[in-house]
């Protein structure tokens, strides 16, 4: 049994056995095992037991990947998440830049406004968007009343509505993520660029943006994964025809009661997100190196 020898202050060696070293890991390890590893394992196993089948089989996976309906659902999930990732990052960047650089007293207010909506929860805000975007909601009614349009614009119950809703919900996370990255850029770099003749826009284009690309990648990754697993917003703002993996899983569990197929969908979602996360983090690492930090 190997042991680690530490010397206490008085010079006496203190031996801590390897086992005792790992004891503090036990409680969290146990929790992870019980509430994460085992259920994940069960879900994996479930996906290989189609309804009515005796032995383990890949039948449900086959079903998933040969049915264009489920594949469209997968594609829609990826598209939706990608769009949200872009929208969140593009909108969060100026806000994060302001928070990182400005010394105006409005900073605290902007920060609160950016983060506070999280307190209201997802469902409340999503229904709020429904009221604003639906065919006889706030925007359409206003435009109809003004005579700008004669038919309501389809702003809800489609990809547009879902992307708007999800962007709103995920934006605070994007802001926080980009804020960290922006704060890592030495303000003297911007000042140097300025004094060398760069306008504010040039400074952002030549200095700030390139140096925050890793932050941009990680913000997009964050927004992507949060979107891909979102349920409430696509369900409420997407309408009946808008099926993404999360809503499809819900249906399989509760309506069709085909838990095996639901597990297949959940696993596909998980693997898809892992692939994206993997690609994203490799990209981020490579960019970091390229920027010679």
């Amino acid at each position: 049994m190997s042991s680690l020898a530490l010397h206490a202050e008085k010079g006496r060696p203190v031996r801590t056995s390897l086992i005792r070293q790992y004891i503090p890991l036990l409680p969290p390890g146990l929790i992870l095992l019980l509430f994460f590893a085992i259920p994940m394992g069960m879900m994996m196993g479930l996906s290989f037991q189609p309804k009515g089948a005796e032995a383990a089989s890949l039948a449900n996976y086959g079903r998933f990947f040969t049915d264009d309906f489920t594949l469209i659902g997968l594609g829609r999930t990826v598209l939706m998440s990608g769009l949200v990732a872009i929208c969140v990052t593009v909108m969060a960047y100026p806000v994060a830049y302001f928070l990182a650089r400005s010394r105006s007293p409005w900073r605290a207010v902007v920060f609160a406004l950016a983060i506070a909506p999280e307190l209201a929860g997802v469902v409340l805000r999503t229904y709020g968007w429904l009221i604003i975007l639906e065919d006889h909601g706030f925007i359409n009614n206003a435009l109809l009343w003004l005579g700008v349009i004669s038919e309501p614009l389809p702003l809800a119950k489609n990809m547009f509505g879902v992307v708007v809703g999800l962007t709103h919900v995920i934006l605070p996370f994007g802001v926080l993520s980009l804020l960290t990255s922006l704060q890592g850029v030495d303000p003297n770099l911007e000042k140097s660029a300025q004094i060398l003749g760069a306008s504010r826009l040039s400074v952002i284009r030549h200095i700030v943006l390139p140096l925050t690309v890793p932050g941009i990648v990680s913000s997009m990754l964050l927004a992507f994964t949060m979107s891909a697993s979102a349920y409430a917003t696509p369900a409420i703002l997407g309408g009946a025809g808008f099926k993404v993996l999360a809503t499809m899983v819900y249906e399989q569990v509760l309506f069709y009661v085909d838990w095996s197929f639901a597990a297949v969908m959940a696993n596909v979602l998980l693997v898809m997100m892992l692939i994206v996360a993997f690609i994203g983090s490799r990209l981020e690492m490579r960019l970091h190196k390229k920027l010679h930090f």
Binding site: L196, I207, K290
Partner: peptide
């Protein structure tokens, strides 16, 4: 007159070289 329009040069204590 904003800094970018003043024709002065500036050398910082920490050099502030563009790392990329």
């Amino acid at each position: 007159v904003p800094p970018e329009k003043r024709r002065v040069g500036l050398v910082f204590q920490n050099y502030a070289l563009f790392p990329h």
